[in-house]
Design a protein around this nucleic acid. Structure first.
Length: 375
DNA sequence: AAAAATAGCAACCGCACAACC
DNA sequence: TGGTTGTGCGGTTGCTATTTT
């Protein structure tokens, strides 16, 4: 078997690289206008360009496409990106599908050049006095291990539930504006909140929840965990029944349901409402993490495999509190063991990261305690 | 005013995978 | 069924503009 060239342009010697000129842009744009964006292999030749097909495709999709919005990102777009990044990690293409006028490249660049710094500043201002901390978790590509930040952090660093809660609170505090509603900012740090969130989760897929399956969809070669929505081919598979969906598919389906609601619902009549609905959904998605984190107990929650959604919901509401407590106990009890394993398997948090997280964790514990007292 | 450092972003690279033959 | 091709994607590079020293 002959070695395949690493790129389509490897075979052509006089291929041009580097910045595109206005003339080249014009040639490409007018060709695509006439023939449409298809059969990229023939585009350079037919359009009279000394570029490789891949370069043409990228130039079109990232720059020349008429529907692309250029220029400053709005506050809503920022929130959207931060929220989705916290859910999915660096799944730029998936994010771009929720910001139709932005390209994955734009989002990626904006995250790397603006938002990451913004988050770091914000975190610093939340914890005044800390000097130049090492925020490795903001740089990390969570996609390789997990699906949302909660799960990511637990998987990567084995955070306990309070640490995870603290970090999510922090993320929520950043993504929520000063006038935001509590629904978009409250993390499921109490069993009551979790129960509420679980209602929606169980409703979505009663049968799935009876399963103890914990594996995520993994990339064949790298063991990557990928949200289904990030892949075009996966996007076509959402007509199957919920019973057969895995967690990621359910997640994507739920996002799509929210989008559908956006289309249909008179209440969600503008972009802000749409974004807000997705931001709020972040909280619901956290439940997936809880479920997966504690498989033996979670099967208890979802014991009614063949029940109707209504029955499943009833069962859940009556058993969730105990079961969640079991989950929490289980997680806390295994903390010690995990810490030991950490030492053997994974690099620990930097001292400063750990200190910041511990501080935030303490705050969460105090808030939860006060909440309980006031109840 | 000039040099160095930094920021922003377009473009490229290489891998993965589905579709096609 | 297996090889080839087309496309999508995330990470990285390198150029240019701007800011700092």
């Amino acid at each position: 078997m002959r070695n395949r060239p690493r790129c389509c342009c490897d075979e052509v010697l006089e291929i041009k690289k580097g910045p595109w000129t206005p003339e080249e842009d014009h040639l490409l744009a007018s060709y695509i206008k006439q023939h449409g964006p298809a059969n990229w292999r023939s585009v350079p030749t037919n359009a009279g360009l000394l570029r490789c097909s891949k370069s043409c495709r990228l130039r079109w999709t990232n720059y020349l496409r008429p529907e692309i919005k250029r220029g400053n990102f709005t506050e809503l777009e920022e929130k959207m990106i931060i929220s989705l990044q916290s859910l999915w990690g660096n799944k730029w293409a998936a994010m771009a599908s929720h910001l139709p006028q932005r390209t994955d490249n734009d989002i990626k660049n904006y995250w790397n050049t603006h938002l990451k710094k913004k988050l770091m500043k914000k975190f610093q201002s939340h914890h005044s006095g800390s000097s130049s901390p090492n925020f490795q978790f903001l740089n990390k590509d969570y996609s390789s291990n997990s699906f949302n930040r909660t799960r990511n952090l637990e998987c990567d660093h084995h955070l306990n539930i309070h640490q995870t809660s603290a970090l999510n609170k922090f993320i929520n505090s950043i993504t929520s504006s000063s006038t935001s509603t509590p629904s978009s900012t409250t993390y499921a740090s109490s069993t009551g909140n979790i129960s509420r969130l679980l209602e929606g989760w169980v409703k979505t897929s009663p049968n799935k929840l009876s399963s103890s399956k914990l594996e995520l969809k993994t990339n064949q070669s790298e063991g990557k965990v990928v949200p289904s929505g990030s892949n075009n081919s996966d996007n076509n598979n959402h007509n199957t029944s919920d019973n057969n969906l895995d967690d990621d598919e359910i997640f994507i389906k739920k996002v799509e349901e929210q989008e559908t609601r956006y289309d249909d619902d008179a209440h969600l009549s503008n972009e802000a409402d749409y974004f807000e609905s997705l931001l709020t959904f972040e909280n619901t998605s956290n439940v997936a993490c809880w479920e997966q984190k504690s498989s033996p107990q979670s099967t208890k929650i979802h014991g009614t495999t063949s029940a109707s959604p209504e029955e499943a919901q009833t069962t859940t509401t009556t058993t969730t509190t105990t079961t969640i407590e079991d989950m929490v106990d289980s997680i806390l009890a295994s903390d010690h063991q995990r810490l030991i394993e950490d030492d053997q398997n994974e690099p620990p948090f930097s001292v400063l990261e750990k200190w910041l997280l511990d501080e935030a964790t303490q705050q969460v514990l105090e808030e939860d305690h006060m909440e309980e007292c006031s109840n």
